[in-house]
Design a protein around this nucleic acid. Structure first.
Length: 187
DNA sequence: GTTCCGATGTACT
DNA sequence: GTACATCGGAACG
């Protein structure tokens, strides 16, 4: 992944990440679902300014922002454009392609569809945690590369938020069986 | 298939 | 004290 890839608005990066490969220590798959957040967005952790938790969102692009949600799950974001500090893309689902055995062992589920079909699930499957917070996703243990084949992208409202719920900043590979929830393209 | 609920770190009123 | 970018299991149909 070129370093400048993340030096763009979160909405653009979120769209372009659909179909990209994401591996951590060789385990992962193709990104099929993302959400964009930025500093003008009431749903974003950065909306109310810097805190100890969201500090990576105000740092350089291309770094990981990993945080704990509901006290027990992890969520993995990639920080975007520093010129608009406080923007990031939440990685919500993968189509698993590498390290299936390890992911099954970590997740304890039987079907491949359940391995990475949600932000907390994929962090468990890829063993993403606090130790990755602030790390560059362009360097080991991460490995990323852009989408190879064209992807039909669907867009809609984000999941699990109340503030800013109408902003259609959720992106997904249309028709994928690995989404956290189905996404129907409007009209 | 659906709804309900508990687990609990971090930020906020 | 309450809310929250979630998940999995129980109960139900």
């Amino acid at each position: 992944m070129a370093p400048d890839f993340f030096h763009r608005p979160a909405e653009t990066v979120a769209r372009d990440l659909i179909g990209a490969l994401l591996l951590v220590d060789g385990v992962g798959g193709r990104i099929v679902e993302t959400e964009a957040y930025d500093i003008n967005d009431p749903a974003s952790h950065s909306f109310r300014g810097p805190t100890a938790r969201n500090a990576p969102m105000f740092g350089p692009p291309g770094r990981a922002y990993v945080y704990r949600i509901y006290g027990l799950h992890w969520c993995f974001n990639i920080v975007c454009d520093a010129a608009q500090a406080g923007s990031a893309v939440l990685i919500r689902a993968l189509a698993p392609t590498a390290g299936l055995g390890l992911m099954h062992a970590r997740r304890n589920v039987s079907s491949i569809e359940q391995l990475c079909s949600g932000p907390g699930k994929l962090c468990q499957a890829l063993a993403i945690g606090a130790e990755h917070n602030g790390a560059a996703v362009t360097a080991a243990p991460f490995a990323m590369s852009p989408a190879i084949n064209p992807v039909v992208i669907a867009q809609g409202p984000r999941i699990g938020i109340t503030a800013g719920a109408e902003t259609p900043w959720r992106f997904a590979e249309a028709g994928s069986r690995f989404l956290s929830r189905p996404l129907r393209e409007p009209e």
